[in-house]
């Protein structure tokens, strides 16, 4: 059975049909990428799957259960976690605390225990801290642990968000442009990390502009254009698909006319 299944998903913003009748599915350990020109509706699709937007039509199934329109915090409890294209970091918290907050579901307890710093509360915090330090080491940020998150570079923040999302030990991880703004070395590191996480059995849904990365690590690719799925298949098939080539070249041609006009 697929871990995540999307069926006929669509949403309208005013008159614009931002996403229309999109469907695909993900199995454990699989890396599925969503690609398409700018404005194709990739992030909108992510926002519907992760509960940020309520879809206008269609269903999202998590392990066979209908979770359409469920709030992100309830999806988190069911094992779905994500990162954001436009970073959503807790700026005023330390790097370590950012990742510790990813342990929320496991570390939360009675408020009174937290107010009085009872042993249970301190133990939960300590366990979250140990886990968070392990994850920071995994993304290469262990030395920045005590720094304020707002002081980190863009590439480091991208990795910090991945570490925070991994803290939930998700069954399904949605990564929205994890390598955007990263240099070649950082991109390769993220690349390895994603492959590693998938190898551990997490299903990964990826939006990414770096085509080399997408082609290298994806098991399956879904191509969107103007909010509609125009193709899907393995990397080799998708890269040969004439509709895909046209969508990309068409977009480029339009952009260059625009630039010259």
């Amino acid at each position: 059975m697929s871990l995540l299944a999307v069926e006929g998903l669509g949403i309208r913003f005013g008159g614009l049909h931002a996403v229309k009748d999109v469907g695909f599915s993900l199995k454990a350990g699989e890396i599925v990428s969503v690609i398409g020109p700018n404005g194709a509706g990739k992030t909108t699709l992510f926002n519907m799957i992760s509960g940020v937007y309520t879809p206008g039509s269609g269903r999202v199934l998590l392990e066979g259960e209908d979770v359409t329109g469920l709030d992100p915090y309830l999806l988190a409890r069911r094992g779905l976690s994500r990162t954001f294209q436009n970073l959503q970091i807790f700026q005023a918290m330390t790097v370590l605390e950012n990742v510790m907050s990813g342990f929320h579901l496991r570390e939360r307890g009675p408020v009174l225990a937290d107010l009085f710093a009872l042993p249970g509360s301190r133990r939960r915090s300590r366990e979250a801290e140990e886990g968070a330090r392990r994850l920071l080491a995994r993304v290469g940020l262990e030395r920045a642990a005590e720094r304020e998150a707002g002081a980190l570079s863009y590439g480091a923040l991208k990795r910090l968000e991945i570490a925070r999302a991994l803290a939930l030990e998700p069954k399904i991880l949605l990564l929205d442009e994890p390598a955007a703004g990263c240099n070649a070395v950082e991109t390769e590191e993220i690349d390895h990390l994603i492959a590693e996480v998938a190898a551990e059995g997490t299903a990964i849904l990826l939006v990414e502009h770096d085509m080399k990365m997408v082609m290298r690590i994806s098991n399956h690719i879904v191509v969107l254009d103007h909010g509609e799925k125009i193709a899907e298949g393995d990397p080799a098939a998708v890269s040969r698909d004439p509709r895909v080539i046209e969508a990309y070249l068409g977009a480029q041609a339009q952009e260059s006319t625009h630039a010259h006009g």
Binding site: S50, G51, V52, D71, P72, Y73, A76, R77, S81, R82, F84, Q88, I89, F90, Q91, A92, M93, S101, G102, H104, L105, R164, A165, A167, L168
Partner: peptide, 12 residues
């Protein structure tokens, strides 16, 4: 306080 949407995403 830092990001309501990210807080929801981590299960808050």
């Amino acid at each position: 306080h830092g990001s309501e949407i990210a807080a929801r995403t981590v299960g808050v």
